[in-house]
Design a protein around this nucleic acid. Sequence first.
DNA 1: TGCAGATATTTTATACTTGAAATATATTCT
DNA 2: AGAATATATTTCAAGTATAAAATATCTGCA
Lengths: 146, 146
Amino acid sequence: MSRPLPKQRLRVWLRMLAAQREIETGLREALRLKFDSTLPRFDVLSALDRYRDGLRMSELSAKLKVSNGNVTGIVERLAGEGLVERVAVDGDRRAMQVRLTPTGAERFAEMATAHEGWIDEQLSAFDSDELEQLIRLLERMGGENA
Amino acid sequence: MSRPLPKQRLRVWLRMLAAQREIETGLREALRLKFDSTLPRFDVLSALDRYRDGLRMSELSAKLKVSNGNVTGIVERLAGEGLVERVAVDGDRRAMQVRLTPTGAERFAEMATAHEGWIDEQLSAFDSDELEQLIRLLERMGGENA
DNA sequence: TGCAGATATTTTATACTTGAAATATATTCT
DNA sequence: AGAATATATTTCAAGTATAAAATATCTGCA
C-alpha cells in the first residue's frame, strides 16, 4: 500500500532538489574561498578545456544549456581575469571563438582537481554499484538525453 | 574493471545536474506561461501554504535554504501581486510574519496541481519501486539531512 | 538603568539568468 | 546586384542569488 505515484514522484523531485542544493552550496563556497571563482565560470572553463581549439559563443551556450546573453557576461569576466581569450573567426565576422589562455588552462587544471575531490567527498556514501544504479536511473529522468 | 570511484562520482553528479536542469527548464517555462510566475515564487507560496499561520522572514529563508535578502525581494513581489501579506509580530518589532492572502491560497492551489502534473510527466518513466530506490539513494546524498 | 552583545530584517554591491530586442553580418533567391 | 531572410552575438530589463554591511530592536547583565 504505497502512496499514489504522482505524490511519490513529487517527493523524489523535492528530494533531488534538496540534495543538489546542498552539494552546490558547498561547491560554490569552496570555489569562492579557494579560487575566488564561481560555478558558472568553472563550467565555462570546463567546456573550453574539453575543446582546446575553442568554441563559438553559441556552441558554448548550447553545450552549457544556458542562454547566449548569459555566456556573454561570464566570458567577459573570464577574459578580464586573463583566463580565456576571444578571437575573431575568419570567414564569419559575426562569430567569436573563445578559448583558454595558457593561464586559464593551468588554472582550470587546479580547479578541476579540487572539484573532483569535493564531489568525491559529497558522494562518498556511495559505492560503485550504487553509483551505477544512480547513473542508470538518472539517465532516464527528464526525457531523451545522454 | 569499472572506472575509478572519484570519476564515477563525478559522472553521477554531472548527470544529476543535467537531469535537474532539463526538468527545471520545463517547469520554469510552464510556470511562466500558465501563471506568469516563477519557481522561486512558487517555492515561497508553497512554504506558506504548509504553514498557514505564516512564517517569519528568517523562518522562510531557513526552510527554503536561501539567503534572507533573497526572500525579502521575492516576498516583496508576491505582496505586490496581492498573494501574500506581511504583518507585524507583536512582542517583537523587528520581526515580520508573512502569510498567504486568500487570493494567494487559491492561486497556489491551482499552481500546485499543475506543478504536480508536470513533475508527474517528467518522472513518468519511473514506477513505484524505482521511485523508492531513488528516494533511498538521494537521501544519502550530500550529508546528514532529511 | 544602561550598555554590550545578540537577533531579525533590509539594504547594498555584485554576479548570474532568462527572454526579448537590437545589431551586425551572411546567405538565398530572384 | 539587391531585398528578404537567417544566423551570431550583444544589449537590455527584470528577476534571482549571495555575502556583507547597515538598521532596528531585543536581552541579559553589571
